[in-house]
Write a protein that binds this DNA or RNA. Structure first.
Lengths: 112, 112
DNA sequence: CTAACATGCAACCTGGAGGTTGCATGAATA
DNA sequence: TATTCATGCAACCTCCAGGTTGCATGTTAG
């Protein structure tokens, strides 16, 4: 691993992931999929958007690995990819930790 | 709290927050700020972007509460708002938990 | 006081995100 | 087999995120 820290290497990837989560419609889809796998038409039910819009969002999410779909008969069923959720959480943990350390150093400095 | 679950109420807010994290440049800023407060010009140093670009990103992040800045003399110093990081993590935890439950139910159903 | 610094403001540009519509195609069902 | 259902593909539209540039303004250091 010469020349690029893991954090650096993962920044772009994480940005993609967060971007996939950073849309209200997609976050709704994530919520609905958190109840279990679902077909596109099912996901479209009750939505104000077109099926095509939903489809596009699903593909964006797939692009960041947040979700994956597979054809079953005449419908395509999608489901969450929990590992990616954990990836996002881990990234936030990392930043939080650095932040804590920084605060620690500051406190130590002030109290000297 | 009639008519809207907490999760629903927070979806829009969370989407904003994730969107703020969903840009490589901003994620870099987050990383740099995790080491402690910093002025705009300092944040711009070493960046390929203009100071104005950085400024815009900071304001976007401020808009989602991810960061806050204050003027100090002739420079404006910005710092992370860790509470928002925790908010994001909590949201992911929520979704993860629902997903776990769904898997649990599925497993139980299959094994019956 | 005057230069050098650190920002703010505003106008402007461009590409792609988010949506829609219309049509084509494979799968399931009466 | 004729329909209906669930999708895929592609063209098209609009708006705004992400950047830049130029100029104005408040701060500091000499």
């Amino acid at each position: 691993m010469r020349g690029s820290s893991p954090v650096l290497a993962r920044r772009k990837d994480s940005a993609h992931l967060f971007a996939a989560l950073g849309d209200e419609t997609r976050l709704l889809l994530v919520t609905r999929l958190s109840a279990g796998p679902m077909s596109i038409s099912r996901l479209t039910e009750g939505s104000k958007l077109t099926r095509q819009a939903i489809t596009k969002h699903l593909r964006v999410m797939k692009g960041s690995g947040l979700v994956r779909g597979a054809r079953q008969g005449r419908e395509s069923v999608w489901q969450l990819n929990q590992r990616r959720l954990e990836d996002a959480r881990r990234y936030l943990d990392l930043v939080s930790k650095q932040w804590d350390d920084a605060l620690g150093r500051l406190r130590q400095f002030v109290e000297k």
